[in-house]
Amino acid sequence: MIGIIGYGSYVPIYRIKVEEIARQWGDNAEAIKNGIKVYEKTVPGQDEDTITIAYMAAKYALVRAGIDPKEIGALYIGSESHPYAVKPSGTVVAEALGMVPDIHIADYEFACKAGSEAMFVAYTHVKAGHMKYAMGIGADTSQGAPGDALEYTAAAGGSAFIFGKGDKVIAEVVDTYSYTTDTADFWRRETRPYPKHGGRFTGDPAYFHHVLSAAKGIMEKNGLTAKDFRYAVFHMPNASFPMRAARRLGFTKEQYEVGLIVPYTGNFYSGASPTGLSASLDDAKPGDLILMVSFGSGAGSDAFIFRVTERINEVRDLVPKVWDQIRTPRKRYLTYGEYAKFREKILMNE
């Protein structure tokens, strides 16, 4: 049996409400909330970035796995907000967690599905017998241009998954399937600080086409239907897209609501569907089937089917769970001015 042997997520404590952003730009907050079904989003602290978020998620995953960090043969971090354009994020995380030097490291990019790519490659290394354990992480401190629709959802957070085989497995990988085309719905050119997008073009030809095709593809391949799954997690750039995708595939609210964190976190980009998976694992019982479908603009979707094992009951409560981090009483709401300072949107003298 090959699958996840440890998982962990990290959610920063800072938040900004949709009302606060709308007030700044003269938008109608109620109309925005009704449209995207997102009410507040996370903001990284001034001393947080993709590397520190990936570190915390990985640390929690190691606690749940209960293994020596030096046994991990590969570390892959998927993100569209790596702090360096040239220099890997993974080396810092691996050094800080004591995984170096016998380890293969790479950073991945594929818009919002870089995290599931990292998971996919980590899993295939173990499946191929290249190494005992491998870790895949999806983490982001995503960018949204001031005043753009993305500013209401571009958030920060991430999740890490350690893949291995044998009796340590928490969730067996039943199958994987990827669906990819060249569809430019959202992009950021080199050296530009903010991404651009194709407005409504990001919907049907991009998100829905790829997510639905990947979900249908993996379910048909395995002779499964929506009714066979306890949980379904779809990439969540907002809440309305994954809810519509779920309904079109025949999933019910009970199946997607546990993994649908975006109304209270915003979009974690590369960490979005991985953190939805993490929230589902926090809630799962042995034997449950979980469908996870990521989406990355450009465009593609990675689909995974997991079957939860008995070991989930031993590891679930070892570190903070996703919804506990989202609802933490320590969360602190920022004004738009504080948010602009935190995200370094204010022009300062050198």
Binding site: D47, T52, K59
Partner: peptide, 10 residues
């Protein structure tokens, strides 16, 4: 103890 950014050279 947590792991955070301490400083950046510009």
């Amino acid at each position: 103890v947590v792991f955070r950014k301490i400083n950046a050279e510009g």
